[in-house]
Structure formats: C-alpha cells, structure tokens
C-alpha cells in the first residue's frame, strides 16, 4: 500500500534539473509544497528529535536557498548531526515538518535520499575496496544508467585516475575526504549535506575543499555544511548557530554579528594575563579572551561594560579600542546563554 503511493508520487513529480542547468521559473517542480517564490531548497520548521530523555534537536527552523552555501555551526553534541540526519531521511523527526528539495521530510524520504548527497562525519566508504570499486558501488546503489562514464569522469576530476586501484583505507585524510565528496557527488545531487567534512584535514586541503564547494555552488548546487572552524563559517553565504539543540542565530555573517548584541573592546597591553585576571568577573564583562598580546573583552550590556573597564583605560602601557566581536566571541556568548536557560 505504502509502496504504491510512493510510485504514484514518482510519476507526478518531474525529475529535478541536473547541476549546471538554468534556474528559471520553469524548473520549479509542480509539487505543491515546493512552489515557493524564494526557491528554498530546505524549508523546515519545528524540527525536533528526542533520544530517551535527551532532547537532541528542539524546534529548529531552517531556510536554505537554492545555490547557497549554508554554514551550520555549533559545539560538539549540539544537534548538528542529528539535524542533518533528519534532513536526509536517516532519522524520523519526532516533531516538525517541512521540505527538502520540495519533498516532505517525513513522508518522502526515499525521494530525498535519491537527490541528496550526504557526506558523513567519519570516513564511511569501504576501506577494503579500492577507490574505483567504492565509486562503482555507489553508482550502482543509485542505479545510474551511465555508470562507467560517471565513475571515469569522477576519477578524472579527482585526479585519482592513476591510483584508482589503491585501497581507500590507505589514503591520507585529505584524499579520503576528497574521495568521500566525489562519491556523494556521483549521482549529481541537487543538495549536498556535509557533516564536518574538514575535521582533521590540513589547511591546504581545506582550502582546496572550499574552492570545490564554491565551484559546485556556482553550478547551482545547494550546500549545507557543518563545521567548527570560524574561518570556514566566514566563507559561507549564510549560516546558522545551534547549541543544546536550539537554533540561536541565522543569517549572513554580517547579520549575525550585528544582531548579536555583543560589544567588544580590544586591549593591547604588556601583561595581558594580569589585566585579564583583574577584568574577569567584573559586572558587564562576560568574556576575556587573550589573542597573543591582545585581549578581547566582551559583554552584552554596552554601558555596564564601559563602566567596568573605564578604571583600566587610564592604565599605563595599555591601548583600548572598540572593535567588532568575532564570530567566535558571539558563539561562545550564545552557548553560555543557552546553558543558563
């Protein structure tokens, strides 16, 4: 019975346009829920998931536009992976609704799986298969008609054509990550869900990886990427911050900084540790973070913060300047706030 209704849906929905094709009005699928003026690839609200007593994800709403790179930030165990798993149909949400590529995240998980490329947190290809065998297996699972060409093209693009017979388990971290990306791009998905793809990868490989992601976004592919790195967050078009399962901020980097309500002073000082020790715990001072010879002093109440630091402004050898809070300052502040709640 269930099978039958899914087959019917398949007939009703025209295939999604492939990467690189135009993004005009005509591409809009005729599915009722995807008929959104803003072309939202991901549009979910009230998403929640519990594991026993633990609320892993609590009332999360996400809007990701087509062709955008959306950064998903948050500390470990904040619910990033759980949210991503719900988006690609690996987990059934306990509450909430919405669509992913125009498909219902609860009822149409099979269609979502067919059109989404999901890169898991750890390397999850077969270590005891060669590079080529892994790609070939993936192509088969997705039932690709032009399997051979797709694998060939992927190997070329990766630059692994001459190492295709090497076991995937013997690759270095950077290459494993590139192979994993190639595998989840093989079936030409419209949406990429990347779960901490650059964890444990060297800076050069990270840079290359991000160039690749921007290249894909240029082709019209939507990318949702979770990360811990603030420099990576700044390379996203928009981002969201999640802590303890709750979404605390969403928008462009600029919007997030402007809406944070955090005020930061930077002090250049001879003995930053001595000064820091004095500043910590003063009213209005919520964070004192050393950056080499600099100290970032932040708080949410601008007047109170200024009042507390004013006695130190006169101190000899110290130069105070008002500065913009960094993403890290903001997120740490938000995390503390979320804990208190």
């Amino acid at each position: 019975m269930k099978q039958h209704s899914q087959e019917q849906n398949k007939e009703r929905i025209p295939p999604l346009p492939q990467a690189g094709e135009g993004r005009g009005e005509g591409d809009s699928p005729s599915h009722p829920t995807s008929n959104h003026p803003q072309q939202l690839t991901i549009d979910v609200a009230g998403l929640s998931k519990r594991f026993g007593d633990l609320v892993a994800v609590d009332d999360v709403a996400l809007q990701v536009r087509r062709g955008e790179i959306f950064g998903f930030l948050g500390p470990n165990g904040s619910g990033k992976t759980t949210t991503i798993r719900m988006l690609c149909g690996l987990l059934t949400p306990d509450g909430g609704r919405g669509t992913c590529l125009g498909y219902d995240v609860i009822r149409e998980t099979r269609q979502i799986k067919l059109n989404v490329g999901y890169m898991t947190q750890g390397f999850s290809l077969y270590q005891d298969l060669t590079i080529r065998e892994n790609l070939d297996f993936t192509a088969r699972i997705y039932g690709m008609a032009n399997r051979q060409e797709a694998v060939e093209a992927s190997l070329e693009r990766l630059g692994l054509a001459d190492r295709q017979k090497q076991l995937a388990g013997n690759l270095s971290g950077g290459w494993k990550q590139r192979l994993a990306l190639a595998a989840c791009m093989l079936h030409q998905p419209q949406l990429l869900l990347l779960d901490e793809p650059t964890a444990g990868v060297d800076p050069k490989a990270r840079r290359d990886f991000w160039d690749e992601i921007h290249h894909l976004a240029g082709e019209g592919i939507t990318v949702l990427v979770s990360t811990h790195y603030m420099d990576e967050a700044e390379r996203c078009h928009r981002l969201a911050y999640i802590a303890s399962g709750r979404l605390l901020a969403q928008g462009t980097v600029k919007e997030v900084i402007e809406n944070s309500g955090i005020h930061t002073w930077t002090v250049e000082c001879a003995d930053v540790y001595a000064l820091g020790a004095q500043l910590r715990g003063l009213p209005g001072v919520s964070q004192v973070v050393p950056f080499g010879n600099l100290l970032h002093v932040s708080g949410t109440d601008a007047a109170l913060l200024e009042q507390s630091i004013s006695p130190f402004k006169e101190q000899a050898g110290c130069r105070w300047t008002q500065s913009q809070p960094g993403l890290e300052d903001i997120f740490i502040q938000m995390m503390e706030g979320a804990k208190e709640k």
């Binding site: 999901y118 750890g122 390397f123 999850s124 290809l125 077969y126 699972i141 039932g143």
Partner: peptide
Amino acid sequence: ERGTMENLLATPV
C-alpha cells in the same frame, strides 16, 4: 563498526 552503515542507509537502498 566501521561507520559504513550510515552511508549505506543514506542511499536509496
């Protein structure tokens, strides 16, 4: 154990 199950489950198989 090797985490390949998650990858498999995310596919249409």
